[in-house]
Design a protein around this nucleic acid. Structure first.
Lengths: 262, 262
DNA sequence: TGCTTGAGCTCGCGA
DNA sequence: TCGCGAGGTCAAGCA
């Protein structure tokens, strides 16, 4: 923690905010305030006790006592300014933003606490079932797509672009695999282009498989008209195989131990 | 403020959380934690310093150092549980939810601060520029759409549905006004139907005006092909006229006073 | 309760 | 930089 102020007067709060709002820290302010927003729409929030958060990328959140969503916000702020109006006994915090041109004004009458921290979070949210994860799962466990499949190359370059997974099936046929979470007509055309490229390179019958967690009837027709195939991956399979990917990063010796902890 | 703990040990933190998570208070926890989510999807958030907020309606937010949106969340939680694992020296906070069946697990290794407040906020966010507000603005100030326009009826019933605003222009021509924030092809067809209905009822040339804050080229063509018109309302105009609507609710005698307070 | 639609959507990807 | 699509979308209105 960098700083913690309890019931600071507005001048003291202003000093802290001026110092920390522009720095790469997270600031939490609890206090009685009213809020005005003007920009893409316009909103007015009457006085009430709220939690105001400035994040390290300058995003601003004004949270009321309820709801998942903030009452008022600014995804990224270009410039902050802080003023104390001694006459009205209020602290005015302005968060301006261009493109779109927006302004959030927060008028504090009382400030309960100011907390300044620097959050360190190198990890990223790994949502499983996303495209890149399906790739990894297929590389790790090609049996998800088809028994006997052996991955030759991943992200293989071709004149038409990068091929998600390039493999050979149990009969040694070259196979192009395209992975999409939400396949559409364009996905089919792209896969077709890849197959044509590979047919030129390897001069033979090349299979093309679209791998996705879901499929529509129309796109399936479109796919089959072009001699291409579809394999549905169950999200559960992908997640299950992904557990292994996660743990394999820790080295094989303690793989069993890690796994049994779950 | 109800309570503020600085660097509590996990047992002390558990006591506080058990007491306050289920009560109608807002709890902010800064600490080093990892998060698992399983439900509609599945996600894993490796250890990192985060801001965890439990709001008064039991909503849960896990904020990282960046972005407007939380890394992980639960809009409303059915039940919380808190356990301390003394062996692993961690505090496990579970937020369960049914319909959909979801679970967020937060494992704290260190807790920097726990802040408990009760936020009181009776005001509501009034977003202006929404459809209903544009209606009100037009009724209040028809000049926004066109000079000399007089409103005859609002929400006029017709066999094709309710007409947003029914008016006469400065030449006494009947005019059908359809208001949409995000107009599409269907909006055009609806307006056309209204105009046709009114033409039957009043047997004459009827104007149809689509009023919206934005418009695309294609929909504009579609509109004009049908002899209909488009008026762009600037959000600023709507908001400006709306100030009057707001204040008029207070009664005329103190209108000036209220207005000058802004 | 379930479905549909809008959102100050936000966010990320690709052209 | 802009446009398009996805989201654990969320949230409100309505059948």
């Amino acid at each position: 923690m960098k700083e913690l102020l309890e019931k600071p007067d507005l001048k003291r709060a202003k000093e802290a905010l001026e110092e920390y709002l522009i720095r790469d820290v997270t600031v939490q302010v609890n206090g009685l305030c009213s809020v005005n927003y003007k920009g893409r729409a316009s909103s007015k929030l009457d006085r009430g006790e709220r939690l105001v958060i400035k994040k390290q990328d300058s995003a601003l959140l004004v949270h009321g006592p309820e709801n998942y969503q903030p009452k008022n916000w600014q995804p990224e702020v270009d410039s902050y300014s802080v003023e104390v109006d001694e006459e009205n006994e209020e602290l005015l915090l302005e968060a301006r933003r261009k493109n779109p041109d927006e302004l959030v004004e927060i008028r504090f009458e009382e400030i309960e606490t100011v907390i300044v921290t620097q959050l360190v979070d190198k990890s990223d949210l790994k949502i499983r079932g996303h495209e890149v994860d399906i790739h990894e799962s297929i590389e790790e466990e090609p049996g998800i797509v088809e028994e006997g499949l052996k991955v030759v190359e991943r992200e293989k370059e071709s004149p038409a672009g990068f091929i998600d997974v390039f493999a050979r099936d149990k009969d040694e046929n070259y196979t192009v695999i395209e992975v999409k979470r939400n396949p559409d007509y364009n996905t089919v055309l792209q896969l077709q282009r890849y197959v044509e490229e590979i047919e030129e390179e390897f001069s033979g019958e090349i299979r093309g498989i679209l791998v996705a967690p879901k499929m529509t009837e129309k796109i399936l027709d479109y796919l089959e008209e072009r001699g291409l195939e579809f394999v549905e991956v169950d999200m559960e399979d992908v997640i299950a195989s992904y557990e292994g990917v996660d743990n394999s990063q820790r080295g094989l010796s303690d793989f069993g131990a890690q796994y049994s902890e779950d």
